[in-house]
Structure formats: structure tokens, C-alpha cells
């Protein structure tokens, strides 16, 4: 087995298997451990400059990645006009930089604030470093190998689908430059680490809050009048 085979066929399946199985186990049988583990109570000034840029930046970028995976044609149609292509690329690049600023501030905060050190685990640092590598390789790819939003749909969309549909086609990503390959591998590492880390809080995004009733009452009485 050569390295390409390992990184682009075997490892994706290992990380996907871990991601799915362990995440489900953790959410169902260890619900107490799922938490965003906010440290705003202990330190808030640096968090402001780290958390807001990072989360807003990374959320939109992940959303764009997801859109390119699900609706590649729509992205291509949108990019048909150069102006729209430039706008998409530029905003993606800006969001990436924003997230980069955020993650750097978050790492600095975690390593230097005594209050934050008190609640820092090894996994927290691993997660932050993996995120840093992802964001840096992502931003570099966006600036060195233009235009990502065009070739993503031709390379990554079919590759990711081939993995998801159990017909892996590693030949699609093998010829890519090492920087882009690193971005891909690093993200599979993140996927593998996901269920063992605080990253599971992403799945707790409480969108049902938008529609649920204000008040929640739980009881065992059989009420007739309400």
C-alpha cells in the first residue's frame, strides 16, 4: 500500500468510522460531556477578539464548503460571471483571514492566561493546533491556487462523493500540490478527533430555539384544562 492509498482511501474511512460511531455513542450515552465548555466567565476580553472572528469566519467557510459539496452546479453557474467569481473568492479569503486572526488569538489566550490554563486539557490544544493548520493551509490555498471555488467542484466534490459512496477515487486528489493535500488530510484528522474533543459542541447548534415555545413545563399530572 502506498502513501496515497493510505491517506486518500484508508485513512478517510478510519476517520469517518470514528466520527460516526464514537459521536453517536457520545451523544447518546455520554450526554453530560457534550458542552461548548465556555470560558467567558473566567476571561472575556481576549475571548471577544478570538471567539467572535473565529466562529463567524469558520461557520461561513464551512457552509461554503458544504454548498460546494451539495450543489456544485449552482456554484459553477454563479461563478460564470467574473464579477461574482471575484466577489465569492474575495469574501471567502476575507472570512478565512478573519478566522485565522480568531484562532491565533484563541491559541495565545489559552497558552498565556492563567485562568484559562486552569481549564485547558491536552485535547483543547490539539484541537486548536489542528484548526490552525486547517485555516492556514486553507488561506494559502485560496491565495496560491486560484480559483478554488471553480476547481473544488471538479476535484473535491467528486472525490468526497466517491468516498461517501464507498467507491473511492484517490486518483482525483493524488496529483494535487502537497499544500492542498495537507489541507485535506488535516481535515480528516480533525474528523477523527472530533468525537473525542470539545468539537462535538458543533452538533449542539440550537436552531430549534427559533421555533420552540418560550416556556417548558414537565410533569406527571394529567391536565385537562390546558
Amino acid at each position: 500500500m502506498d502513501w496515497n492509498q493510505f491517506f486518500f482511501v484508508v485513512f478517510p474511512y478510519i476517520s469517518l468510522a470514528l466520527f460516526v460511531a464514537v459521536t453517536i455513542y457520545r451523544l447518546v450515552y455520554r450526554p453530560f460531556t457534550q458542552s461548548s465548555l465556555s470560558s467567558q466567565l473566567l476571561e472575556r476580553k481576549r475571548l471577544y477578539w478570538g471567539s467572535i472572528p473565529f466562529h463567524h469566519g469558520i461557520t461561513w467557510i464551512l457552509l461554503f464548503h458544504l454548498l460546494a459539496l451539495l450543489f456544485p452546479k449552482a456554484i459553477l453557474v454563479m461563478n460564470a460571471t467574473p464579477l461574482r467569481l471575484y466577489l465569492l473568492e474575495l469574501s471567502g479569503f476575507a472570512l478565512g483571514l478573519w478566522a485565522l486572526v480568531g484562532v491565533v488569538v484563541l491559541i495565545w489566550r489559552r497558552l498565556t492566561t492563567p485562568y484559562i490554563k486552569a481549564v485547558t486539557s491536552t485535547m483543547d490544544i490539539i484541537v486548536l493546533l489542528l484548526t490552525l493548520v486547517s485555516v492556514i493551509t486553507g488561506v494559502l490555498t485560496a491565495s496560491l491556487y486560484r480559483f478554488g471555488s471553480v476547481w473544488f467542484t471538479g476535484v473535491f466534490t467528486p472525490y468526497l462523493w466517491s468516498v461517501l459512496l464507498f467507491q473511492p477515487r484517490p486518483e482525483l486528489v493524488e496529483p494535487l500540490p502537497w499544500l492542498i493535500q495537507l489541507h485535506l488530510i488535516n481535515n480528516f484528522i480533525i474528523l477523527a478527533v472530533f468525537p473525542f474533543s470539545r468539537l462535538v459542541h458543533i452538533l449542539a447548534l440550537p436552531l430549534d430555539y427559533l421555533i420552540r415555545p418560550w416556556q417548558l413545563v414537565i410533569g406527571m399530572r394529567d391536565r385537562k384544562n390546558s
Binding site: P31, F32, Q34, S35, S36, L37, S38, H201, A204, P206, D208, Y209, R212, Q215, L216, V217, I218, G219, M220, R221, R223
Partner: peptide, 22 residues
């Protein structure tokens, strides 16, 4: 998260810590 609720019988307001996401 909808982790806090009111008990119908005695009105105690409780946090379900298994649902709380901080």
C-alpha cells in the same frame, strides 16, 4: 438548548445538565 424546565407539580425550575450545552 431547552435544557431548563419547570416541574409541573411543585414549580421547581431545574437545569437538565445532560441537555445543557453551556
Amino acid at each position: 438548548s431547552g435544557a431548563i424546565y419547570k416541574r409541573d407539580e411543585d414549580g421547581v425550575v431545574l437545569v437538565n445538565e445532560n441537555d445543557c450545552r453551556a
